[in-house]
């Protein structure tokens, strides 16, 4: 019995060593690849099915580590999300600044940049308080723009702050003109943030979407500053003038930075 066991053990050793020897010489490569090809799909099914079970048991063992890892990943996601939000805000700000810089370069105006400190607390008047005053060169009647669009003019100047009357204020009136038609009118603010253009000659062929700019008449506002576009037209047969409701290009409630035109 002992002899047989010794023979089997010796034969297995010889087989293993001979296989290793022939494998190292490359004699089994084609046989090896053939076997792999045949058995690989089955192997994959097994690997996949057993992988799940194996993962389940290994997860049970690693649950503490996984929780820790999960926490770390969550905190990483949070920090990446906040970074992403910050970058989106920066991108928006960058675009707004680019537009403002573009307007500054194209128009040739010399401007004073300012930020908004306060809005009118009543919501009936449309005025804002900015963080630049006479110390920064701001003077009464200077014109205020945002991203190249007209927003109002300076009415009161203090040493470090100034008050601006927005064009949507009911007491704001300025001369405007159409860009494609040769006609002018008066742009007036309305209670409730509206803007209306009145005194447009009846014969003017005014269309929806027409862009209105400052006409420069009276010298209070420079010519060609964008005000808004026509949203609706009111025409009465017995009147010598027609009027139009305007939509501004700027969201006055979302204003953050503005430019005061010096010259």
């Amino acid at each position: 019995m002992k002899k047989i066991s010794f023979l089997i053990f010796f034969s297995i050793l010889i087989i293993i060593f001979s296989l290793l020897f022939f494998k190292s010489k490359g004699s089994f490569s084609s046989v090896d690849s053939g076997i792999t090809k045949v058995f690989s799909p089955v192997g994959m099914v097994f690997a996949n099915s057993t992988g799940g079970v194996k993962d389940f048991f290994s997860n049970l063992g690693n649950i503490g580590n996984l929780q820790k890892e999960n926490k770390e990943l969550r905190s990483q996601i949070n920090s990446l999300e906040s970074e992403n939000a910050r970058m989106t805000v920066n991108e928006k700000e960058n675009e707004a600044l680019k537009r403002e810089l573009g307007f500054k370069n194209d128009s040739g105006f010399s401007t004073i940049p300012a930020e908004i400190s306060f809005f009118d607390p009543t919501n009936i008047r449309d005025t804002i308080v900015i963080n630049k005053g006479s110390n920064d060169g701001v003077r009464t009647n200077m014109v205020a723009t945002s991203e190249g669009f007209l927003i109002g003019k300076v009415t009161d100047v203090y040493t470090t702050t100034s008050k601006i009357l927005l064009i949507t204020d009911p007491l704001s009136t300025l001369p405007g003109m159409m860009t494609t038609i040769d006609a002018t009118g008066l742009v007036q603010g309305q209670i409730g943030n509206g803007l209306q253009m009145t005194q447009i000659p009846q014969e003017t062929d005014l269309k929806k979407g027409e862009v209105i700019v400052t006409s420069g008449l009276g010298g209070e506002y420079p010519k060609g500053l964008m005000i808004g576009k026509v949203e609706s037209i009111t025409k009465k047969n017995n009147s010598i003038f027609q009027s139009a409701s305007l939509r501004t290009f700027v969201n006055f409630k979302a204003l953050e930075r503005i430019q005061i035109i010096k010259n």
Binding site: I124, R125, P170, L171, Q188, Q190, I191, G192, G194
Partner: peptide, 13 residues
Amino acid sequence: TLSFQAKSFALSG
């Protein structure tokens, strides 16, 4: 006050 100053008594106001 505003309507008298602006000489406009719009219904929207």
